[in-house]
Design a binder for these strands. Structure first.
Lengths: 351, 351
DNA sequence: CTGTTAGCGCATTCAG
DNA sequence: CTGAATGCGCTAACAG
């Protein structure tokens, strides 16, 4: 495998000149540059990443810390995020290293940085009170958190506006005359899950309605949980006429359970989800939900991380982005109500 | 950030001894080793990955080449594979670097290796006649292909037994007295898609039934394609009483379309999928499908890659694994038939 | 504009 | 069992 010296010899220059050409240093005569470039192409020279990293003290790699939970990982949601992150990192010259966190909390997350394998971290969906964050901050690792937040230095984050989403649905369902609204929570160790639930409670009270613990079903993001939620709500008195699910998977489980029970959606009960996964337009009826701005989320994360890695002292940015409602057919007027569904942003499954 | 020399000084040894301790070289006095280890822990020393890589000429990193297609990537299927691969790589001391292939074919795939950023490659679902494979082989990059195959040296692969899957379904549907069977193909630039279609044709003919082009709908793996397939088959005369879909997504689109048309599954038409994605147990009715042995596939891939990377000269292994049928409720006897559904491997959605 | 010197942190080879 | 010398391939800092 050829090195700079090989190129240098064949081009009749010192290897220093080769280095300059490779790094686009302007102070090289055009003629020499071209000669060197030609040799480089001819013998197929590529700079050795390890030597570069050693010298520059920069690995040009970002670590992607995956949720510990195998289940969460199987969300297409995360895959899309990963896809966008990688795409945005490449133009900056950075690579993306996967780090799954099944071992000891602190070690996993810290080691890659201490070994200088990565220059910074992107953490996907860290749980509340995650000890890893403390370790990250202590080690002064430039980091951006996605779908979570933190006040620690060195830790930037980008999240979606959970309160706005819940607020939107609450309005929407109110216009459809729903009075009793159930809520399916996600795994409450996850910040987004908690924020959604808290928003539900707070916003309800702000409207002067009383918040009833019984109207909350604690799920874990899985379709199965939505299944359980249906049964639970069906047994309630008074029974909710509409349900807000903290994600689409659970909403889909809910719909499935309703079908099996012989009920019709939205005639018998309305349901909304969050995420707009592909399957959401393929349920019967198609699910009303919120679409998250994936590529913006990824872009904000990469931006924050880049400037954070470029600085010497602690720095962090906090970004909140809003989701976009996707109104389909899983909501209707409350039984006995006369309101009509508001058909804005009508979205049909392409076909 | 401390280096070996720092540890050496504090432990009153030469940095060479530190190196030996770090690499578990047995020829170090137990007492010295412990002293060194203590210092290492105290000052939080971690070996510098770049220096190591430079010296050993090994990056201890594997590149994961993702499908170019954003759609395919959103399959939870791939995420699971990634998860398992990472998990299996870590014990070997290897990291996993993501490589998305949106740029020029050869460059993308080759560069990381030529730069010595990765020691080998795992390629997910390469299309038929992929020029990248030729480039990989030419560069003598130890590589394992997943869900594809190739005869090129240096390229190992692991795939599932597509013919066996189709054969199983053909038997199963025959027992249910289905005579006219439709087939929804995946994106035919993908080897698995083609193998499934070819098996369908071949096995049908082997049974002495004639293969009819009209009974094949060419999809692209998406739910939308399944939607279109339903409409297509509904217009056919004679109309198929059962349909084999090349993946679950398309099967789910098919089911959705059937619902919208007011038909019942499996009474009016039977359908099977492949993959057993999570959603497959949450359709109405729950989908009969094939579950792929994810962790075995990943294990076979990692194994092959490891031995391939450990060798000097070309080496490759070819592995074929079989999928496991998951019989749920989307198939019934052909209209007018008297056969009963064979209830083996009965699988209910947990709940 | 180009070359020389030095060293990034580690592991291999050879001496003790 | 331990240490000294050497070089992996590259770039920063300083000559020329």
């Amino acid at each position: 495998m050829p090195s700079q010296s090989d190129v240098a010899r064949l081009a009749n220059v010192s290897f220093m000149t080769v280095s300059r050409v490779v790094n686009n240093d302007p102070r090289v005569k055009e003629e020499t540059r071209e000669r060197v470039l030609r040799v480089i192409r001819e013998i197929g020279y590529y700079p050795n990443a390890a030597a570069r990293a050693l010298n520059r003290r920069k690995a040009m790699t970002v670590g992607l810390v995956l949720p510990r939970d195998e289940y969460v990982l199987s969300e297409p949601y995360f895959t899309q995020l990963i896809y966008h992150i990688e795409r945005l990192l490449v133009p900056h010259g950075y690579g993306l290293l996967l780090i799954a966190g099944d071992g000891s909390a602190e070690r996993d997350v810290t080691v890659a940085f201490r070994q200088r394998t990565v220059d910074g971290l992107i953490v996907l969906g860290s749980p509340i009170g995650d000890e890893r964050l403390e370790a990250i901050s202590r080690n002064r690792i430039p980091t951006v958190l996605m779908h979570a937040s933190s006040e620690l230095p060195w830790i930037s984050w980008v999240d979606i506006d959970n309160e706005a989403m819940i607020g939107y649905f609450l309005n929407y369902l109110a216009e459809l005359s729903h009075e009793v609204i159930g809520f399916i929570a996600g795994d409450l160790t996850v910040l987004d899950a908690r924020q959604r639930l808290d928003s539900f409670r707070t916003l309800l009270e702000r409207r002067g309605r009383r918040f009833d613990e019984h109207l909350v079903y604690r799920g874990d993001w899985s379709s199965n949980a939505g299944f359980g939620a249906y049964r639970y709500f069906a047994s309630l008195e008074p029974r909710p006429t509409a349900v807000i699910s903290s994600n689409d998977h659970m909403a889909i489980g809910f719909i499935k359970a309703a079908h099996e029970a012989g009920e019709r959606i939205p005639d018998d009960v309305s349901i909304v989800g969050i995420d707009d996964i592909e399957m959401a337009s393929f349920t019967t009826p198609a699910l009303t939900t919120m679409r998250q701005p994936m590529s913006e989320i990824a872009a904000a994360a990469v931006d924050s991380l880049m400037t954070s890695m470029g600085r010497e002292s602690a720095w962090e940015a906090h970004t909140v982005l809003s989701a976009e409602p996707v109104i389909r057919n899983s909501c209707g007027p409350a039984a006995g109500g006369r309101a009509l569904p508001r058909q804005q942003n009508l979205q049909t499954p392409g076909s």
